[in-house]
Design a protein around this nucleic acid. Structure first.
Length: 569
RNA sequence: CGGGGUGUGGCGCAGUUGGUAGCGCACCUGUUUUGGGAACAGGGGGUCGGAGGUUCGAGCCCUCUCACCCCGACCA
């Protein structure tokens, strides 16, 4: 590629809305441009990197036996109604009507479409197992898109779906994909970790996330300092270490005036008690009913865990309106006298004589004890784990450490969730119809690019791993006018191009400094520099972006340059 | 959705009590430069997010609206 005929859209300054390194650098390097919140153009160099990632993914998917298809971006509501997700998915699903007033949405994921497709085409166990994948745009109307293409509303995802005859076979498919994912992220040159995860809106029984470790990651990963355990905070279990409570020490229940003390911190300092002696009461709306949940004052409720425990599709904090309708006094909530089911975190089991809200303005209760003062519907693990918690693995005495991660891939065991709801079946060996056992596997392509930038940069710009760089090598003649350096550069350019390298020739009418800076900002791993200075010595120079090393070659030693590059790629 | 903030040339920004809109970078032309974002001279480019209003006069004041960003959306 001759850069005089190319689009190098580099900027000296990043737009003020770019917060993370990767966002700033991708804009400055001229890879992406925003055209609406969470919606981006990929400019030529950005697309080249994107394609590199895409091709690595495609290659590994094909090697793992997955078959590529393409499903539509626009999907009809009836498929979503069939699976039941039309009502569950909420505002993230961008819905619209066509001219005939029929409901559609932009696909945020494709379980429905692919299940329908496979169900139509596959009739027999003889056609199984089968894993279908596509690399295609998705749209999720995120509450808050941010960090450039890291969390965009429109984004490209590789999504694969496996169909098997039974659970055991499905597990094999899962492992195949899991291993393919490891190879993909290794080839992309990323430092990552596979962790246990919650399966969220997609549903299913079991899942792993692939996390690229980075400061700016949006997820919190907890890993054991002793064993192999690692999981997303959302799903990290807490060992139930509660002991039997001594019933004899019950104090009388009493109300205490706590004017305007609505937070745990305020109440604990006002009453001079530790936050562990306070129990927070939260009211939540689930699918059908309002429930109350108790967690210790120093703990955080995990909506994810509670949702899983209750088996409900919808669970959220009750909003102010609902609270008012039920005469719940915000800031002074307590479990005493409420007629909703009360769920309580395991850590409460231990507690005697704790403090809660009194359900009336400016009062808390002290000397509160469950069973005596209120009844708990069920105890369970409902709080979020944090740094320093003990490892949830049986027999392990290690403790958890947290790191931040960018979720670049996610693999799920779905089981028969979708094949049942959509009545998708094949005929088994015994002539009976059976639901498919499914798995689903996603990778955010743009997010992999952003994660690579986030993990690989310095003060000069992006240091792309060689497998992802937009060009493998750029040839920089350091004289502007046509002369011996340019003709030498063109010769080497032709030679390396014919040797199947991805070469850029920076023949723009720019000063050398500009070319060096651009090349380093964009993240091209090697520069070949040719100028009056080097030619006077009869050499050309090869500079390594990653190490800063400069090698000299005889100006006619094209083979030597080629061999060196071959070594490095 | 709640709170806060910002919209002025492609990017980054300034614009005073209301009086004909400016700077740096980028861009174009010319000359000189040519190994780390060159110098000089000249030049082009703006419905000041949009609509309405107040005023002799609005980038600036008022009303509405749109977009974008940040924080929160779990502590009750």
């Amino acid at each position: 590629m001759k850069l005089s005929n190319y689009l190098i859209a580099t900027l000296k300054e990043a737009p003020s809305d770019a917060e993370t390194k990767s966002h700033q650098l991708m804009v400055r390097a001229g890879m992406i441009r925003k055209i609406a919140a969470g919606v981006y153009n990929f400019l030529p160099t950005g697309l080249r990197v994107f394609r590199k990632v895409e091709n690595i993914i495609r290659d590994e998917m094909n090697k793992a036996g997955a078959i590529e298809v393409m499903m539509p971006f626009v999907t009809p509501a009836d498929l979503w109604e069939k699976s039941g997700r039309w009502d569950i998915y909420g505002k993230e699903l961008l819905r619209f009507k066509d001219r005939a007033d029929r409901d559609f949405c932009l696909g945020p994921t494709h379980e429905e479409v692919v299940t329908d497709m496979v169900d139509r085409e596959v009739k027999s166990y003889k056609n199984l197992p089968i894993t279908i994948y596509q690399i295609q745009p998705k749209f999720r109307d995120e509450i808050r898109p941010r960090f450039g293409v890291m969390r965009a509303r429109e984004f490209t995802m590789k999504d694969a779906y496996s169909f098997d005859v039974n659970e055991l076979e499905a597990e094999k498919s899962y492992i195949k994909m899991f291993n393919a994912y490891k190879r993909i992220f290794e080839r992309c040159g990323l430092t990552f970790k596979a962790v246990e995860a919650d399966s969220g809106n997609i549903g299913g029984s079991f899942s792993h996330e692939f996390m690229v470790l980075a400061e700016t990651g949006e997820d919190l990963v907890l890993s054991c300092n002793t064993c192999e355990f690692a999981a997303n905070v959302e799903t990290t279990g807490i060992k139930d270490v509660s002991i039997a409570r001594n019933d004899k020490d019950f104090e009388p229940l009493a109300e205490v005036s706590t004017p305007k003390m609505t937070s745990v911190e305020e109440v604990s300092s006002f009453m001079n008690v530790s936050s562990e002696d306070i129990v927070k009461t939260l009211f939540l709306e689930s699918d059908e009913e309002l429930i109350a949940v108790l967690v210790r004052g120093d703990h955080e409720l995990s909506l994810t865990k509670l949702k899983k425990f209750l088996g409900s599709d919808f669970l959220d904090l009750a909003d102010n309106k609902v609270l008012k309708e039920n005469n719940i006094v915000k800031g002074f909530c307590g479990p005493i006298g409420v007629n909703f089911k009360i769920y309580s975190d395991n850590s409460i089991k231990d507690l005697t004589n704790f403090i809660t809200g009194a359900n009336k303005d400016d009062y808390h209760c002290q000397g509160v004890n469950y069973d005596r003062d209120f009844l708990v519907e069920s105890f369970g693990d409902f709080r979020e784990a944090f740094d320093g918690d003990s490892c949830p693995i049986e027999g392990c005495t290690g403790s958890l450490e947290s790191t931040r991660g960018i979720e670049v891939g996610h693999v799920f065991k779905l089981g028969t969730k979708y094949s049942e709801s959509m009545n998708a079946k094949f005929t088994n060996q015994d002539g009976k119809e059976k639901n498919y056992y499914m798995g689903c596997y996603g990778i955010g392509v743009g997010r992999v690019v952003a994660a690579a930038v986030e993990q690989n940069n310095d003060e000069n710009g992006i240091k792309f791993p060689t497998a992802l760089a937009p060009f493998q090598v750029v040839i920089i003649p350091t004289e502007k006018t046509k002369g011996p350096a340019l003709s030498k550069a063109e010769e080497i350019y032709d030679y390396l191009t014919n040797s199947s390298f991805e070469v850029a020739l920076d023949d723009r009418q720019e000063s050398p400094g500009v070319k060096f800076k651009d090349s380093e900002l964009i993240g091209i791993p090697f520069q070949i520099r040719i100028g009056p200075k080097s030619l006077a010595k009869g050499v050309v120079e090869l500079k390594n972006r990653l190490t800063g090393d400069i090698l000299e070659f005889d100006q006619n030693d094209y083979d030597g340059i080629r061999e060196k590059l071959n070594e490095l790629f």
